[in-house]
Each structure stands twice: as structure tokens, then as C-alpha cells.
């Protein structure tokens, strides 16, 4: 356990150093991260205005609250492992990670959290500025704010486990870019990013509620904004835990098999 603490601390320092070295890449991530919710927010605000201020109960300022929260949640939960793993495997960079005494996942978790802390320093002021621009209707009560924290942490863990499992596909398929892109499109629509789930057509909405993507983004957002009943909240937490357990099992299985498959190309 203390070994892991040492590992995380060391990883934390090196990540900060290397990220500050490549500020350009950091800026690009941040622009992308901020722009996407702002695009959908603008689209839906325009729709709300054209319908006399309201789409199915969402006003422009409801959309603002939804998408600004979604910005924070997606900033906290996104990972880039699906690209990194492909690179690791294709270039043989995974080999040195495998001979280390700790599972490579720790390195990535530490990297990811450090990166989030760094970018949060930019994202937080941006959200404050956007709050003045878009005038969101934050109706947050004490219990939703409290419930939001575990929901966010579970969303992060869930997205992490699912995307690590997806990333392990690169052990068998060398060119995973098309699969990654497909995954992100599905994520975009079924997580509540393109539109809050309530606005999707009925059948799509039921599918989305059963799949894990909504639990990684839309669920914590709606929970915070008080759009969910206590029953829905409990169901949501249950779904998050169930999907997380399943994803961790899958992750372990695919990783164990994948590493056996790995032939260290290029090393």
C-alpha cells in the first residue's frame, strides 16, 4: 500500500512537469473540452427560443445549467487511454510498463488525476465566466449537492473502467481508431451529451437508461440539478455500481488475456 502511495506521488510530479512542458497540447484539450458543450448549449438555447422559450420543460437557462454541469462532469471523467493504449501496443512502449512491479493502470490513474487537477485550474474560471454569459438556472439543494459527489466519483470510475476495457481491444486489433470513433459517437448520443435524455425519442431514451453511458455523464448532471426523484437517484446509484462491477470484471479478464497476446512489436 505504501508502495502505491510512493508510486502515485512520483507519477504526480512527473506528470505535472511534463504537462507544463507541453502547454500547447494542454490548451488544445481545454479548448475542445469547453467548446463541445458550448456548441450543444447554443443549439438547444436557439431551439428553446424558437419554441417560445421552452422545449419539453427545458428553458434556455435550464440548458445552460445542464451543459455547464456536463462540462465539469466530462472534464472530470474523460480519459485518453483508448488512444494511448493503441500507441503503447503498436510502438512496443507497453513492455517497460509491464516489467514494473505495479500494474500499469496505476500509472495511468495517477496521470489522469494530475491532468484533471491541472486543467481544472483553467476549466473552473472558464465555467465561472460562462455562468455570467449564459445565466444558468442553478437550482441545487443541499441533498443533491451531497449526492452529486459520490455520483461523480462513480461516474469517473465507471468511465475509466469501461474505457480501459475498450482500450484493451488494441491487443487484438492493431488499428482501433475506427472503433474508438464509433464508441465516442455512441457515448455522445446515449450519455446525454447531444441532448438531455428527456429530449431523445422514447425508444432511444429507454435504451440509454439501460446502458452505462448515461451513468457516466447525464445521471450525475441531472442528479445535481434536482431533475431526478429520490427513487430515480437510488436506481441510478445501483446502476452505476452494477456497471462498475461488471466493467471491472471485464477489464481484468481482457487485460489478463491481452497481455498474454501481446508480442511487443517494435521493441
Amino acid at each position: 500500500m505504501t508502495d502505491l502511495v510512493v508510486l502515485y506521488r512520483a507519477q504526480f510530479k512527473t506528470t505535472i512537469a511534463s504537462q507544463l512542458q507541453y502547454r500547447g497540447a494542454l490548451v488544445i484539450w481545454i479548448i475542445g473540452l469547453i467548446l463541445q458543450p458550448v456548441i450543444y448549449l447554443s443549439v438547444w438555447s436557439t431551439v428553446a427560443e424558437s419554441r417560445g422559450g421552452n422545449v419539453d420543460g427545458f428553458t434556455a437557462s435550464d440548458f445552460a445549467a445542464y451543459y455547464l454541469t456536463a462540462l465539469v462532469v466530462s472534464q472530470a471523467s474523460f480519459t485518453w487511454i483508448m488512444w494511448e493504449m493503441e500507441y503503447w501496443i503498436r510502438q512496443g512502449n507497453l513492455s517497460p510498463l509491464l516489467v514494473r512491479p505495479a500494474h500499469p493502470i496505476h500509472q495511468h490513474v495517477a496521470n489522469n488525476l494530475t491532468f484533471k487537477l491541472l486543467t481544472m485550474a483553467v476549466v473552473a474560471p472558464v465555467v465561472v465566466v460562462l455562468t455570467f454569459v449564459f445565466q444558468p438556472n442553478w437550482t441545487i439543494s443541499a441533498w443533491t449537492a451531497l449526492a452529486f459527489i459520490p455520483a461523480l466519483l462513480l461516474a469517473m470510475a465507471l468511465r475509466f473502467a469501461v474505457e480501459w476495457t475498450m482500450a484493451s481491444l488494441a491487443f487484438w486489433i492493431t488499428r482501433v481508431n475506427a472503433i474508438n470513433q464509433l464508441y465516442f459517437v455512441v457515448f455522445l448520443f446515449l450519455s446525454g451529451f447531444v441532448a438531455p435524455l428527456d429530449l431523445l425519442p422514447g425508444p432511444v431514451r429507454s435504451i440509454a437508461e439501460w446502458l452505462p453511458f448515461y451513468r457516466m455523464l447525464g445521471f450525475p448532471v441531472e442528479l445535481l440539478l434536482g431533475r431526478l426523484s429520490p427513487t430515480q437517484a437510488m436506481v441510478g446509484f445501483g446502476a452505476q455500481l452494477a456497471w462498475l462491477a461488471l466493467a471491472l470484471v471485464l477489464l481484468n479478464v481482457t487485460w489478463a488475456r491481452g497481455v498474454r497476446q501481446y508480442s511487443a512489436v517494435g521493441a
Binding site: V43, T46, V47, S50, R51, V55, D56, F189, V194, A195, L199, L200, P201
Partner: peptide, 9 residues
């Protein structure tokens, strides 16, 4: 999705 809710954007 957009045009299921409105006919002009």
C-alpha cells in the same frame, strides 16, 4: 434530434 423538437433552428 434537433428537428424532432423544432422545424427551424
Amino acid at each position: 434530434v434537433i428537428f424532432s423538437k423544432t422545424d427551424r433552428l
